[in-house]
Design a protein around this nucleic acid. Structure first.
Lengths: 334, 334
DNA sequence: TCCTGGCAGTCGGTATCGTTGACTGCCAAC
DNA sequence: GTTGGCAGTCAACGATACCGACTGCCAGGA
């Protein structure tokens, strides 16, 4: 598609632009990169690259910057599998060696880690509870009309939902309901919620009502999983135009937008979405790099970073991959 | 301290500046506000107000803007107790009538509510677990070396911590430890953690070790309470200078800074901290309006909003007060 | 004594206008 | 196919001037 020289020039433009955020001109490339031709030749090649949509000029008399298509080519064909420097990988290693305590906290701190390493906004989608086996289910009465359903998963994650109960409900009915729920769920996953049928002990009034409420409450929870975001303020540094900053920040605050964005990219099996590729218009100046978190072959979550389209893709890819990998391992052995 | 006319002028300047974010000149005040004197007189008064530190000129030949001291005077003496308009108060009412489910979610949505109503960043410091009675304590084994301690509070809040356990620990020892913990804590608050002594049943090996780990884990949790923040991106709209935006956003991302800021203000019994008053230098262009959340006379948390010093204090005060009040009531009856 | 209108002075903001410099595209020569 | 050279374009920058929104001050009037 692109001959070697064009490829080399495109690569040089992308690298240079990522490093400086300034349009890069033909003479820079002629001198700085190892391509042994004059700037005039490079100019000619760049004109072709522009015609084919890999580069644009912000205005006449300016150098070129990559288009989304240019970045895409770079990521697909040119980005070397980017080894992380030793400092970074040691940093990640130490982080996960030291990680302990509640999963929620670990994920939260993982998003901070990603922000620190990539200087971009980071997203961590917590392990969906769906495929995790349930360890215990309990129902705890809070008042005459309210109770909490507490589910402990095999990973140690605890989830609770408050449900309303009938004021007339007896404690023994609550116990019976809890026992029935426990029997139906413990050892299997929340997916089997649908299978929780009548208890068969509705001799005690209201047992099945409680079970129904609990199942309903747990079903909604499985939708809104844990989401951890950090580093949104790095966007303020990434763009000069204050308008873009506002737009991006406002969009990032709508968590569900970001979540479906990341989920969508992961589901499509992609690891990078560049500019308009992800389809979220207010974020068209941003790229997203994601990786699934896998435990025992199961896709249990995702991590990602979000930055300007001129982000450092090799580094971001390597970092995200490494973090998702280590996070998966860490989740696996606990 | 300030005669009536100066007071009226200061009030007019503050109101005008809050509305337009533009320096306000003497002639505006002469015409717009009901003070029946000429602009020359107002000019003279303004010069005095500037000398006394209530106003400043960004530069010669510009109007005046309030100083922190000016805002302070305004808030202390001039801000009418600000009734909320009907739309807003109905909004708040409906919100809390409809609020249900897990406390965490409610608090999260409360911070969104505050952001929507005030167009500022909002902070909600969740009820500290400290003074809430414990409903149940349980220990659930996750693997041979890990277990989860699950505490359900009377409010329905559930907290868990993962602890390590000895591989040799028997299930019956775990049960014994859980029973001892439950016996010591249920019905009282986490404050009594310190009183949890030896179980007296250490005949079963390792029981007391587990109890100790659990107590230690629960003690750290009581420090880092639930914190919910939202609307940070409104800061991008509040300031023109991109440098200020960056600085403020970066600071807001350091959660502990914001938390101690809010806590400090509440502890000092203040409801508004203006500019440098709160002592967090990077936020010196911001003011904070806070209110404690009180349940049964107990101070269980705080809500607040954070905006530019030229925020709408009457509205912010009224909103924060109303939300904290309703939130307290809502927490009280569940 | 206090208030007022008038006037001179200050200074940020905007518009205009060259100048500069970093580019490009094109072309003729190699 | 490659190159050096050259003319052309245009953003960025600085200088200049002008305008407009202020202020401070002062002398005259209630």
């Amino acid at each position: 598609m692109l001959d070697d020289r064009k490829t080399a020039i495109l690569s040089a433009v992308v690298n240079q632009y990522i490093a400086t955020a300034l349009p890069v001109g033909s003479s820079h490339i002629a001198t700085a990169s190892g391509i042994g031709v004059s700037s005039a030749t490079i100019r000619h090649e760049m004109a072709v690259l522009e015609q084919e949509g890999f580069l644009v000029q912000p205005h006449t008399s300016a150098g070129r910057i990559p288009t989304d298509k240019g970045y895409r080519f770079f990521v697909d064909h040119l980005a070397t599998p980017g080894r992380l420097d030793d400092v970074t990988s040691r940093h990640v290693g130490e982080f996960f060696d030291a990680a302990h305590g509640r999963l929620e906290e670990m994920l939260h701190r993982t998003s901070d880690l990603l922000t620190t390493l990539t200087h971009s906004a980071a997203v961590v989608l917590g392990p969906s509870a769906q495929p995790i086996p349930v360890r215990t289910v309990q129902i705890v009465r809070l008042s005459s009309v309210a109770a909490t359903v507490v589910v402990v998963f095999a990973t140690g994650v605890v989830h609770s939902e408050v449900i309303e109960i009938a004021e007339t409900l007896s404690d023994s009915a609550l116990l019976a309901a809890a026992a029935h729920l426990a029997h139906s769920l413990e050892g299997s996953t929340l997916a089997s919620l649908a299978d929780v049928g009548p208890s068969g002990v509705d001799a005690i009034a209201g047992v099945d009502d409680v079970v129904r409420s609990a199942v309903a409450a747990l079903q909604v929870q499985s939708v809104d999983d844990h989401v951890y975001m950090g580093g949104a303020s790095t966007m303020a540094d990434a763009f000069d135009a204050v308008e873009v900053v506002r737009q991006v920040l406002h969009t990032l605050e709508q968590q569900f937008v970001v979540v479906s964005l990341v989920r969508d990219i992961v589901d499509r099996g992609m690891s990078v979405a560049i500019g308009v590729e992800h389809g979220v218009e207010p974020l068209s100046a941003c790229s997203v790099v994601v990786a699934p978190v896998v435990v025992d072959g199961q896709h249990v979550g995702s991590v990602g970073v979000l930055g300007p389209t001129r982000m450092n893709y090799p580094q971001a890819l390597a970092t995200v991959d490494m973090v998702s990998d280590r996070l998966g391992k860490r989740l696996g052995d606990s």
